[in-house]
Design a protein around this nucleic acid. Structure first.
Lengths: 208, 208, 208, 208
DNA sequence: CATGAATGAGAATTCATTCAT
DNA sequence: TATGAATGAATTCTCATTCAT
């Protein structure tokens, strides 16, 4: 972010860089409020103050309040997606059960955040997501799981309903455990129960 | 307050009767707004107008806005509970699979409301429930299912995690299908997928 | 308050008796609320509930809310007046200083209520009196004091201003001490300081 | 924020200036309402309208309605304090009686406002002060009077009670005279009676 | 680009009082 | 007389958003 520059040279890039930095600062402040003060204190004015900008600046980067929350949710979602993809990519040589177990473990860990602040953030986002028009979890994970299973075990292709049920059962159970701050979250027991449910869906779907 | 009474005497105390009628009218108006106009129009003033009472009357019967929604949710919840109980009570002679299938079907039907207005109401209530401090679905249904299964098949007792996963997978999948107005809702396919998930949980839990 | 009476005889009296009882109950409930819950909870509806009557009944006996408070203030004022009169009547043979000291002591004791509930009531009434159009303390006490002094010591008659200053200095100092829950209230020190002030007014007035 | 500045530079930061101006306008409007319409018309909406701002602006500068009144009371109180301090500072060479008389005269004049509007404002503020948690008059004035007296006449130090009684007798008598719109207020007679009361307190306190 | 003063529709809630029964 | 359901004007305060500087 150099101030004095060769005149007329590449003026855009540093500015874009600053913009990116500003957006990041705003999102960070949003996360901090959600974490430390609760979603009802997430007003645009308060956010501006905590971010160290004026409200006007906030509106320079986001069209409205909702967009800010959406951006934060998206950031979180992308992080989970990234992790799952990493698992899908790696470990091609492991057995199907092991790979599926790994996927479930990854998701579990993404939700089972233990440090209180981070956890409160995830909770707040999940709660806001319910109110606003926030995209549902993608069925890519469920589809990937079905694919791994079929590639190894064969059986018929899963129907729409199978994918839907698996996606929702997996994500929503984790979501609810998080929202309720369930003590089960993070335990081996819980993960195993989840896994049994997943395998139940798989076996059922391919047999019937 | 005995139910069967000498004819011609079957009249509630007029005062209590009026009050009960008023409460019913208020709840009906609430449902109508949620159904026809959306939850963001559910303001106390607007509700009063649509109910045909003054705002003061609303507050004579409910301590605050939230309580009204809560009452409506409770009404709905009680209805589902009633239906599930009926299933649990009857059909003692059918096989375990049949009985469990019946329970799942009942739940499915409770969520798969087809008449648009009623459906919008259920959606609105589910969405409001997420915001407000509304009780999570009871695990009684999941426990009942496990009991039916074990009574017939034996196996180890389900753990906390098993119950939690089954409860959430079942209710949340239905909840999400409803919220998303999924076209799967109400189809045989969907019900079967649900059922496979349930049996997967049961088999997994009793074996491992 | 006899219930069964010779038929057709003096029907008014028992009814008046009941009315008096009702009014008393209402005032008592008012005092209780002021004492136990604070003046901001003194709403007509709440008062009715605590008095065990319906609001309608309250309005049968008082034209409006203000009148209830006024009646209570009046009751309290009458009590103080009664006590001062008793002092003025008795002790004719004591010296003027002693008699005046007795009057001041009586007033002091009337305000220096030590039992918390009673004290809160006096405070609440004083505060309400400030808001509503409630009569100021009568100057009869000040006049009586001046008379006692002149009868013994001679000097010129007190002017309007002298009476006003003495009345206000005396009552308002006590009022403020009560409102502020001053620890001085009730002490010998405080009473002596008050007395010095009173004698200062008297000496000054008769000399100049 | 230096007071004397190079001419032509004596301008507050435009931003602070606007804010200060707005606050002043709001307080002025508050005073105008209290003066012309009475305290029961001092609602936030009405105030906003009369101030020529939107209601939101009012709340940008004051956290709630009470704070507005408080600010006005404070302004008034500061003015009286300023005047009394000026008297205390000046006239060091005059005799103690003369200086005390000057203090009493200053207070008297502060309360004896003759122009009707200003007077109604003082009344309204005094009345509101009784309702809200507004600070009682400071005992600095009474202490100063005692000090002047003792420096000249000697005698024992005044006790807590002496200070309290003098403070309250002085301020509350003036307050009541103002609230009751007493015709005595502003007369020589009244001031003399006040002065006699004050000297009575002084003499009594130092002797006994 | 940044600022932040100003906006104002609209939300929830209160409570003295009335009046049909 | 007594009741208490119903009234509804009025109040305080919030907060997303705009726009002149």
């Amino acid at each position: 972010m150099p101030q004095p520059q060769p005149a007329g040279f590449n003026r855009k890039s540093p500015i874009q860089g600053r913009a990116k930095q500003t957006v990041a600062t705003i999102l960070e402040a949003t996360a901090r409020i959600l974490t430390e003060e609760g979603s009802e204190r997430l007003t645009t004015n308060h956010l501006a103050r905590r971010a160290g900008f004026s409200i006007g600046t906030i509106y320079q980067y986001f069209p409205n309040r909702e967009a800010i929350v959406l951006a934060l949710v998206e950031r979180q979602r992308a992080e989970v997606e990234r992790r799952v993809k990493a698992v899908l990519a790696g470990g091609e040589d492991a057995g199907p059960e092991a790979r599926i177990a790994q996927i479930v473990r990854t998701l579990h860990q993404a939700f089972a955040v233990h440090r209180a602040p981070q956890r409160r953030l995830v909770q707040a986002l999940l709660r806001l997501a319910a109110t606003q028009g926030i995209p549902t979890p993608p069925d890519t994970v469920a589809r990937a799981i079905f694919t791994i299973w079929r590639d190894a075990k064969g059986g018929r292709a899963p129907g729409e309903s199978d994918v839907f049920v698996l996606t929702q059962s997996l994500f929503e159970t984790l979501r609810q455990a998080t929202l309720q701050s369930s003590p089960l979250l993070g335990t081996v027991d819980f993960e195993e129960a989840l896994l049994r449910m997943v395998f139940g869906c798989l076996r059922g779907a391919s047999q019937s």
